[in-house]
Nucleic acid binder design. Structure first.
Ligand SMILES: [Mn+2]
Ligand SMILES: [Mn+2]
Ligand SMILES: [Zn+2]
Ligand SMILES: [Zn+2]
Lengths: 124, 124
DNA sequence: CAATTTATTGCGATTGTATTGCAATAGTAT
DNA sequence: ATACTATTGCAATACAATCGCAATAAATTG
């Protein structure tokens, strides 16, 4: 299952790189100049996630948001960090704050999903 | 808008109290002996949340889970805690682990939603 | 207890997000 | 240029959650 380079992938990656934030399929589609089908965008996003290029966040609005893995690539293991969703400007940013918790070894943690919601520093 | 006591409310509360976990509307409906409409269950759950009796968690599966506020009632302010969703037994438990983070005062945090996913100690 | 008020419920319709099947399209390698 | 198959578009589908509205029933009043 080799990956191919397509205009769609580039466009999606471009929007995410420029925004520097976590975006929903809807927001990405709006920020793209060319027309791309909704289902295709989701497939592209999910493929990027599989490849470890993007990470997915689910906010308490129940929607999925995708963001570039900045530290995931070059270095070791991906770092679990908090996210902030501003209900005013409706954006989600990856906070440079690590998620810490000490859980019994008996548990096997596979995913971490932490989102703070409120008003961001720009909108406050 | 005074609240009234109804069999539905009691049944829902009963299931949640017995399970001691965070449950979805679907799971609650399955564990209830009487027949209650889906929309009604959601309305009851949301009302309980408004009244501070329950708290809602959104997992990365995009679903809403509701759990009793144990420490929310008697004491001071509600404590933000982590949640663990086991993909094996398909349950969510409120972990006795507080969520800590230091965020610039410029941000206004209104909600905290933290969920760890994997295999719980029982299923591991 | 009977009458009144209105919170609550059931039901169907509806919204909104995300996924899937399938045929058509277009990268990529030979 | 040809063959292979990853990728895409489109429509259908799945699913969680909410909403409008009429019917029901809890609580209050006389
Ligand atoms: Mn992030
Ligand atoms: Mn909890
Ligand atoms: Zn903002
Ligand atoms: Zn389990």
């Amino acid at each position: 299952m080799k990956r191919r380079n397509t205009p769609t992938k580039e466009a999606v990656m471009d929007v995410l790189a420029k925004s520097g934030k976590a975006m929903s399929q809807d927001a990405i589609e709006q920020h793209i100049d060319i027309t791309i089908n909704r289902a295709t965008i989701y497939r592209v996003l999910n493929r990027f996630c599989e490849d470890g290029i993007l990470h997915k966040v689910v906010a308490e609005d129940g929607k999925q948001y995708f963001a570039l893995c900045k530290k995931c690539d070059g270095h070791k293991k991906p770092v679990h960090h908090f996210h902030f969703r501003c209900t005013t400007c409706d954006t989600i940013e990856c906070l440079p704050i690590e998620v810490h918790f000490s859980l019994s070894e008996a548990y096997i943690v596979e995913h971490v999903n932490c989102v703070l919601t409120g008003t961001c520093k720009t909108c406050a």
